[in-house]
Amino acid sequence: MTRTVLVTGVARHIGARVASVLASDPGISRVIGVDTVPPPTPARDGGPAPGGVPLGRTEFVRVDLRSPDIAQVIAAADIDTVVHVDLMSAPRALMKEHNVIGTMQLLGACQRSPLIRRVVVRSTTEVYGSSARDPAVFTEDAEPPETPSHGFAKDAVEVEGYVRGFARRRPDVTVTTLRFADFMGPGVDSPLTRYFGRPVLPTVLGFDPRLQFVHVDDGVEVLRRVTMEDRPGTFNVAGDGVLLLSQCVRRAGRPTMPLPSPAFGVLGELAGRVGLADFSPEQIRLMCHGRAVDTTRLADELGWKPKFTTAAAFDDFLRSLGRDADGGPLAALIGRIEEEFGR
């Protein structure tokens, strides 16, 4: 059976990587990549441009998901598989319409198409929110005590709602929802990666949240697998283990600036206004209470686990910033003293 796959959000890193890996799969006849802006073009004389991922034989169509044009693309290209990775977390003003209306249009188009067999949607573990009353580890069926009411996380909750509605109306279509932990690794640009890239890291005084990451390579591999195989359902995707924020900043060897939580919000807003960082209310909550998810279901279903643990994904991200994960000058110094003593 020939397969024609539509990938959304190919102008961004994850979308481009997924399109690229699908394009190199001989089992897929065509890969159509869509986005509102053209993907950054790889340099002419071979090798990807900075930030650019070679898209191979992916055919790019410039279309806004919020417009009904997407239905024409799906019909014209005889698309049978849709991989929807295009969720954006910034800028906030555009985001909601893009995420929610875009998904509605896309699913509406899928519903009308008789050829669609499989829909894969990228979601986020942010749908579980983050609060003091959370269970330590969320399984896919867990009902969070407080569902997110702001921003990206709320969008993701709404997107998942529309996806469930679609799955009910089209029981003949295999629908897979992947709830990804925060991506880490080379090329990833997210509020959290921007945060860890700073010279001084603000933290919430008296809180040390548990964080979980998934390496972008593993994320792409999971998306590839569920695109190629029938794996209906909702799955958490995260690297094994958890890291405390304190462990992360120590690994990064960066100084922290603990702020009481109200100050964190105000400062975050100020920083956001000058374009430094965006601390949404969700992120501040994450910085207090953290979140961890259970990934047993994914491992059982796919018979596969992410190659990178949470810690390994974070260390690889640090390396991509050109930093050692040696824990900063003091730890390195003690390491040297130890060696001296050992001799």
């Binding site: 330590a136 580890v137 548990r210 283990g241 958890v242 890291l243 405390l244 304190s246 462990q247 992360c248 900043v249 120590r250 690994r251 060897g253 953290g290 961890a292 994960a325 040696d326 824990g327 900063g328 003091l330 730890a331 003690i334 390491g335 003293i337 130890e338 003593f341 050992g342």
Partner: peptide, 22 residues
């Protein structure tokens, strides 16, 4: 002393494990 230094270094470098509950 080396054991102690090693402990301090690993703590400073974040090289220790916690379980999923923290």
């Amino acid at each position: 002393l080396i054991e102690l230094l090693d402990f301090v270094r690993r703590r400073l470098a974040g090289e220790y494990e916690i379980d999923e509950f923290g």
